[in-house]
Computed example of a mutant assay.
Amino acid sequence: MPVMMAVAFLAGLTGCSRPEPEQAKTVLVVAARPAEDPAGVAIGVVRSASLHAVAAQNGGRVEKLLVDVGAHVRAGQVLAMFDSRAENLKLASATADAARLSAVAEERRHNFKRMDALMRASAISQSAFDAAKADARSTEKAAASARDLAALAKRDLDLTAVRSPIDGVVAARPVRLSDTVAPGTVMFEVDGQGPREVVTSAPAAAVALLQPGMSLRLRMNGSEGRGVVTEIGERVSANSSRDIRVRIASGDFAPGSVVEIVLAPDRTKAAGALVPASAVIAPAGTAKAVFIVTADGRLKRVPVSLKAIGSAGALVDGAVRPGDRVVAAGASFLTDGMAVKPVLTAR
Rank of each mutant, 00 (worst) to 15 (best):
D296M: 02
T294N: 14
F82G: 01
G323Y: 14
P255F: 13
V207Q: 00
V326H: 11
E106F: 15
D317Y: 10
A144E: 13
S305K: 07
V340I: 02
L79D: 09
G330P: 03
A277W: 09
G323C: 10
M1V: 13
T200Y: 03
V236M: 04
S164C: 01
G337Q: 02
E22L: 10
L216T: 00
G192D: 02
M214G: 12
V275N: 09
K133N: 07
V181N: 02
M4L: 09
A86W: 07
K133Q: 07
L152T: 04
V186P: 00
S332T: 15
D158S: 08
A8S: 10
H52D: 13
R100I: 13
S278F: 13
Q193L: 15
D83F: 09
A238K: 09
S278Q: 10
A98P: 05
R217M: 12
A142L: 02
D37E: 02
P165W: 10
T26W: 06
A103H: 05
A35K: 00
A136L: 08
A284G: 12
A314F: 05
V170G: 00
G318D: 05
A71M: 07
P342W: 05
R33S: 12
M214N: 11
Q126H: 14
A249T: 12
A271I: 13
E107D: 06
S145H: 11
V41L: 01
G272C: 01
V45G: 06
I43E: 10
A56K: 03
A35S: 01
S17R: 08
D148S: 11
A264R: 06
R114H: 04
R74H: 11
I248C: 04
P276S: 12
A289E: 13
T26I: 07
G227W: 12
S240R: 14
A55V: 09
R325I: 15
K300C: 07
V169I: 15
A271Q: 06
Q126V: 10
H52G: 04
V320I: 12
A273T: 05
D97W: 06
I309T: 13
T335K: 09
N239L: 05
S278A: 09
A39N: 12
G313R: 04
S84T: 06
A24Q: 05
V73C: 03
M220A: 12
G310K: 08
G15Y: 15
G310D: 00
Q77Y: 04
A279H: 14
V162Q: 03
G70R: 01
D252H: 14
P265V: 02
A205Y: 04
D83Q: 02
L274Y: 03
R226W: 11
A254I: 10
Q77F: 09
R321G: 07
N221E: 07
A42H: 02
A328L: 15
P212Y: 05
A39E: 11
A103M: 09
A273Y: 02
V7G: 10
G297R: 03
G192E: 00
S240V: 12
L157W: 02
D135Y: 03
G233I: 03
A161K: 13
V198G: 04
V78R: 03
A94D: 05
V45R: 13
R196I: 12
P265M: 01
V169M: 15
I166D: 05
A53M: 04
P265E: 00
G225H: 06
P322M: 01
